[in-house]
C-alpha cells in the first residue's frame, strides 16, 4: 500500500523538469516536499496525481501503474489541491465544494449537503458557503478549494486515500497556515497519505513526518525533517545562511538571517 515513483522523469520541450526519481510515500504520514522555485516540486506532484505521464519510468498506486487506473476510481483515492485556481464562473462556495463529490456521490441530498458544510467548516470557511466564489479573496478561495479536495476523498475507499497539496499555505494568513497544516496532520493520522509542497522550513519542522528536498529537478535529501533540514542544507540548496535552534520544549527552528 503505497504511492511510489520508479525512476520517473519528466521533460517538456526538451527541458528536463524532473530527473529520474524514485520515491516511496507511505499512507498515514505527512510528507513535505521542499526546494527552490523551479526545482520540480509541482512536476513531481502532478506525476503523483497522474495529471502528467512520466517521460520515462512509472508512477504506481498500490503497485498498479497510474495509467491503468480509471479516472473515477482514482478520483476516489486521491485528490490534488493545485497551486492556482482559474474558476471564473459564479458558483457559490458550497457549490464549488460539491463539485469535488462528482464521483463519490452515493448519499442522499441532505447527507451530501452536510458533508459539504462539514468540509467548509473544517477549513474555517463555513460562513462563506453562500457567497459567490469569484467574489472571494485569494485566501478565502484557497480555503474553499481545500474544502473541495477534502470533500472529494472524505468517504472511505477500498485502499488508503491520498491528499496532494501544492503550496496549500500560499495565500493564507499565518493563523490559517497553521490551521491548514494541523488539518493535514489530522487527516494523515486517520490513515490518509498527505504530500504537501511547502516553502517554510519551520512549518515542515513543526508538522511533517518526512521531507523530500528537490533541487534542479533532482532529489537531494530525504528523511525526517530534523535530520534533513539543517544549516548545511539551507546553504547548499537555497544559498542561505541559517541557524538551527532547539528550544527548551524540544521543538526545532530554522532562523534565516536578514543578509542571507
Amino acid at each position: 500500500m503505497s504511492l511510489r515513483t520508479l525512476e520517473a522523469s519528466y521533460a517538456a520541450r526538451g527541458r528536463e523538469l524532473l530527473a529520474a526519481t524514485s520515491v516511496d510515500f507511505a499512507p498515514g504520514r505527512l510528507h513535505a516536499i521542499v526546494g527552490p522555485n523551479g526545482a520540480g516540486k509541482s512536476t513531481l506532484l502532478r506525476l503523483l496525481a497522474g495529471e502528467w505521464r512520466p517521460s520515462r519510468g512509472s508512477v504506481a498506486l498500490d503497485g498498479r501503474d497510474l495509467r491503468e487506473w480509471a479516472p473515477a476510481a482514482l478520483a476516489r483515492r486521491r485528490a490534488l489541491l493545485p497551486q492556482q485556481h482559474s474558476l471564473s464562473f459564479p458558483f457559490t462556495a458550497a457549490e464549488v465544494v460539491a463539485l469535488g463529490r462528482l464521483h463519490t456521490r452515493r448519499h442522499k441530498a441532505e447527507v451530501e449537503r452536510a458533508i459539504v458544510a462539514e468540509a467548509l467548516a473544517s477549513c474555517g470557511a463555513a460562513q462563506l458557503a453562500g457567497r459567490l466564489y469569484p467574489q472571494l479573496s485569494g485566501g478565502e478561495r484557497a480555503r474553499v478549494q481545500l474544502a473541495r479536495v477534502l470533500a472529494q476523498i472524505r468517504d472511505e475507499a477500498d485502499g488508503a486515500r491520498w491528499l496532494l497539496l501544492d503550496e496549500p499555505t500560499a495565500h493564507l494568513d499565518l493563523a490559517f497556515q497553521h490551521a491548514c497544516l494541523r488539518l493535514a496532520r489530522e487527516w494523515s493520522r486517520c490513515g490518509v497519505g498527505v504530500i504537501a509542497v511547502l516553502h517554510d522550513p519551520n512549518l515542515v519542522l513543526a508538522y511533517a513526518d518526512d521531507v523530500l528536498v528537490l533541487d534542479a529537478g533532482r532529489a537531494v535529501a530525504v528523511g525526517a525533517p530534523r535530520d534533513v533540514l539543517d544549516a548545511a542544507l539551507m546553504r547548499q540548496v537555497f544559498g542561505l545562511a541559517a541557524r538551527r535552534i532547539e528550544l527548551a520544549d524540544g521543538t526545532h527552528w530554522l532562523a534565516v538571517g536578514a543578509d542571507g
Binding site: 479516472p71 476510481a73 478520483a75 485528490a79 493545485p82 485556481h85 474558476l87 458558483f91 463539485l99
Partner: peptide
C-alpha cells in the same frame, strides 16, 4: 451536465475529480 460543471474548475482539476 455534472461533468461540464467540473470542467469549469479547469481541465486538470476536472481530471483529478475523475472526469475523462
Amino acid at each position: 451536465a455534472a461533468s461540464l460543471n467540473a470542467l469549469l474548475l479547469g481541465e486538470a482539476e476536472a481530471a483529478h475529480i475523475g472526469v475523462d
